[in-house]
């Protein structure tokens, strides 16, 4: 049982369901990443986890105890903190913003001063302490909001797109701070639309599509270990063996872009070096005028094709298919 969990949760606004999650566990000392396009329910998920909103249905559990009443949520919020994507800072100094947060946790006086000083230092914004929070740049404001959350030393730290306004250097520094929090024993969860970022800095990844946990590996991404040298290499990607073309070596992520995978009933006589047999598990509209197939090829792969291709090939759920992708089309990063 994790520190913070969702169980059979559904939530919506104005009669429209935006989130339906069967099970989600955030463990102490771990980092979970939530990925998905805009409007996929990431922010709603974080707000429910933060106990800022109560789910329309289902249960939020903290330490295995259901968080039901308003006072349960209030107690939970003393241990969980959320940093929103466009964080709000009160119209006072940066230091006052942190002081206010600490005062809500009953931390005042010298203890508060030392904790807020440390938090600002960790984010590298010790010099901003006396600035008016409303006069900060977007990137600075985001750092202040994160420092404000860190000063509270929460058991669970939730962040919505924490690096959306950060430059590449700050992004690395920020995620290293989050990693320190993980080692402290906190449960972390961040939302991102940057798959690379999510993969790199999380232990676990939850992909959301239209408010539902996507049963497929998001966009066919796999961790792998590349042999040294350059040119065409054979690598293991989950249960698949792939030919890739790259100069990189060592730990890497390979991606099979869903639009570059060719679907056929039988193996093709083509230049594609990568071919996998599988069965169609799911067929759905992709929302962009095409069709998304989930194909079980030892691992679930997402493939996007057109409506006419689907009709021509006469594909239905359970149809055996061969998926092919050219060596050069496999992306490595």
């Amino acid at each position: 049982m994790g520190l913070l969990s969702l169980h059979d949760v559904q939530h919506g606004y104005g009669g429209r369901q935006v989130l339906a999650i069967r099970e989600l566990d955030l463990e102490r000392g771990s980092v979970a990443a939530v990925v998905g396009p805009n409007g996929s329910g990431k922010s709603t998920l974080l707000r429910l986890l933060a106990c800022v909103e109560a789910p329309a249905r289902g249960t939020v559990l903290l330490d295995g105890q259901a968080v039901r009443s308003g006072s349960d949520r209030r107690r939970a919020r003393q241990r969980i903190t959320l940093v929103e994507q466009r964080p709000f800072l009160f119209a006072s100094t940066v230091r006052e913003n942190l002081r206010y947060a600490l005062s809500l946790h009953g931390v005042r006086g010298p203890t508060a001063e030392s904790r807020l000083g440390t938090a600002l230092q960790r984010l590298g914004i010790g010099g901003l302490g006396d600035r008016n929070a409303r006069g900060l740049s977007e990137g600075e404001a985001q750092k202040v909001a994160i420092a404000r959350a860190l000063a509270l030393e929460p058991d669970a730290l939730l962040l919505d797109e924490p690096a959306s306004a950060a430059d590449p250097t700050s992004t690395g520094a920020l995620y290293r701070i989050l990693d320190q929090e993980r080692r402290r024993g906190a449960a972390l969860c961040f939302a991102s639309h940057q798959l690379e970022e999510a993969y790199r800095w999380s232990d676990r990844l939850l992909a959301l599509t239209d408010g539902q946990a996507s049963p497929v590996t998001p966009e066919n991404l796999f961790r792998t270990d590349l042999p040294p040298g350059s040119g065409t290499k054979t690598v293991r990607a989950g249960p698949l063996t792939l030919q890739v073309y790259t100069d990189k070596s060592g730990p890497a992520i390979v991606a099979l872009p869903p639009d570059d995978i060719v679907v056929s009933p039988e193996p093709l006589h083509s230049s594609a070096r990568n071919a996998f047999r599988g069965r169609i598990r799911r067929i759905s509209e992709d929302g962009r005028g095409g069709v998304t197939l989930a194909v079980d090829a030892g691992v679930d792969l997402v493939v996007r094709i057109t409506h006419s291709a689907l009709a021509e090939l006469g594909l239905t759920i359970g149809s055996p298919v061969v998926l092919s992708i050219k060596t050069m089309a496999v992306r490595v990063f």
């Binding site: 707000r47 933060a50 959320l82 929103e84 709000f88 404000r148």
Partner: peptide, 22 residues
């Protein structure tokens, strides 16, 4: 008032009254 004011107070650990006060 920006809806984030209340939410921010709540995420920082405020109870309902402190959030209203914010």
């Amino acid at each position: 008032v920006d809806p984030r004011v209340r939410r921010t107070a709540l995420t920082l650990g405020a109870g309902t009254w402190r959030a209203h006060w914010a």
